[in-house]
Design a protein around this nucleic acid. Sequence first.
DNA 1: CTCAATTTGTTCGTATGTATG
DNA 2: ACATACATACGAACAAATTGA
Lengths: 240, 240
Amino acid sequence: MFQKSRVPLYLQVARLMRHKIENGDWPYGEQIPTLDELEREYKVSRITLRGALDQLEAVGIVKRTRGLGTFVAKDLSEQRWFKLASSMDELVRTVADLKIRLLPLQGDASQPLAPAFNFGLAGPAYERLRRVHYHNEEPYCLIEIHLDKKIFDSDPQGFSSAPVVPQLAARKDVKIAHAKQVMRITVSDEDTAAHLDIGVGDPIADVCRVFLDERMQIIYYAHIQYPAQMIQIETDLLRC
Amino acid sequence: MFQKSRVPLYLQVARLMRHKIENGDWPYGEQIPTLDELEREYKVSRITLRGALDQLEAVGIVKRTRGLGTFVAKDLSEQRWFKLASSMDELVRTVADLKIRLLPLQGDASQPLAPAFNFGLAGPAYERLRRVHYHNEEPYCLIEIHLDKKIFDSDPQGFSSAPVVPQLAARKDVKIAHAKQVMRITVSDEDTAAHLDIGVGDPIADVCRVFLDERMQIIYYAHIQYPAQMIQIETDLLRC
DNA sequence: CTCAATTTGTTCGTATGTATG
DNA sequence: ACATACATACGAACAAATTGA
C-alpha cells in the first residue's frame, strides 16, 4: 500500500493521521480508532503504529493513556492562518493584521539583485534586508527583501523594524505602478529549514514579489518562503 | 544538519540535488560536483550519496560514468507546466490548451455533495464524474466533479469525454454568476497517490472550485488534486 | 603505449533504525 | 518483549573506467 515511497512507513502513517485530524475526520478532543482497528485500516503492524503515534504525541497532537485510548489533543482544523494575497489592498491588510516579530539576519547589506523571473529593470542600488517573521512565537516565513536604496535611506529605522509593504503603500512619494508575484511549491534547503524550524526537504511555498515604478524600475523585490502547509489561496475567478 | 527530519538521509540529499537541477544551479548537460566534493558539501558518506544518486539516475535525471563523472541528463528547469488560473478566461484557455487524456474512474454516479467550504446552495441533483487527466502520458491531476444533473443530461456524451469547464463556458443557456476556488497544500492519501503515481504523503495542491448560477445555486463543484511540484501561481496585484 | 590523475563503483565491519508476527 | 529480517549510515580501503600528458 505504501511501496511507492521510501519514506519510513511510520512517518507516512503519521502524516495520514495528521491529515485526518486537520480535516476534522478525527475531531478535537475525541478518541481515535483503537490500535486493532488502525492495524486493519492501514495494514501495518502495531509497532509501526506506535512509531507514528510517538511522532504525533511528541508534538502534542494526540494524548495516549494506557487502558483508555488515544485522543486528539490539539485543534488543527483551523491551522491555516496564512492567506496569500491576490491584490495590493489585501496584501497590505494581511501584513498589517499579523502580529509579528522580526528577527533580522546578518548578511551583506548591498548585494546584486538577481530576480527569479524577468520583470522590470534593475535600479542603481538596493538595501538588502533578511529576516524571519514570527507569529505566536512560531516562525512563519523567511523573507529576503531588496529595497531601493533611496527609499530605504529616507527612513532606515522604520524599514528595519516593521514590515516594508504597508510603509511603501502608505507613502505619497512612492508610486507603485506594477506589482506582480509568482508562487511555486519547492523544498526547503538546509538554511531555510533551520530558520523555519522544519525538516530539510519539507515542502515550502516560494514567493517572489516585485514592485515597479512608472519607469518600470524595480523598487522592491522580495523572495519569501513559507512552510507549505500553512498556505491557503482563495481566488474569485470572475473578479474583473 | 539533517536531524530535524526522520526521512532517510539519502532521500533528503536527493531532494536537495533535484532542487539544484530545477533551479539551474547544476545546468542541463553539465557535470555535477564529484563525490569527494559532495561528501564535504553535505557532510554525508559516500554510501549515502550513492543512494541519493541512485534515486535520480533511476528516473533519468542524472547519468553516471565511472572515471568520468556524473552529469545532468534531463532539463528540469522548465518543468513547471501548470499555471493555476486566476480568472475564468485563463481557466478556459489553460484547460483547452492542454492535450489531455481522460481516465474515467468508477464511482457512485450520484452522491451527496459536501463542499469543502461554504459558498452557494446545493441543487437538487448532481452527476458525479471522477477522472484522471493526463498530459504527455503522465498523470497530472485527479479530479472529482459534481455537475448539475440537468446540465449533464443535456449532453452526457460531451461532458463524459472532455473537460467540463470549456463546455460550460461556451454554453449560452448556462450563466455562471459566481466562480470561486480555494487552494491548499496537503499530503496525498493512498488513493490519490496511486492515481497520480506519487508517494503516499507527498505534497499535493488541493483545489476546490465552485460555480454558481444567478440564484446562488451550485451548478459545478470540483475537487482537484495536483502534485504540488508542478504548480505555479502568478498574480498581478494591481489587476483591478 | 604507458602512466598518473581523476572519478565513480564496490566491499568490509559496525552500529542503528525500521518493520513483521 | 522476543526473534528475525532488512534498510540506512558511517569511514576507510580498494577496484575499475576514463582522460590527457
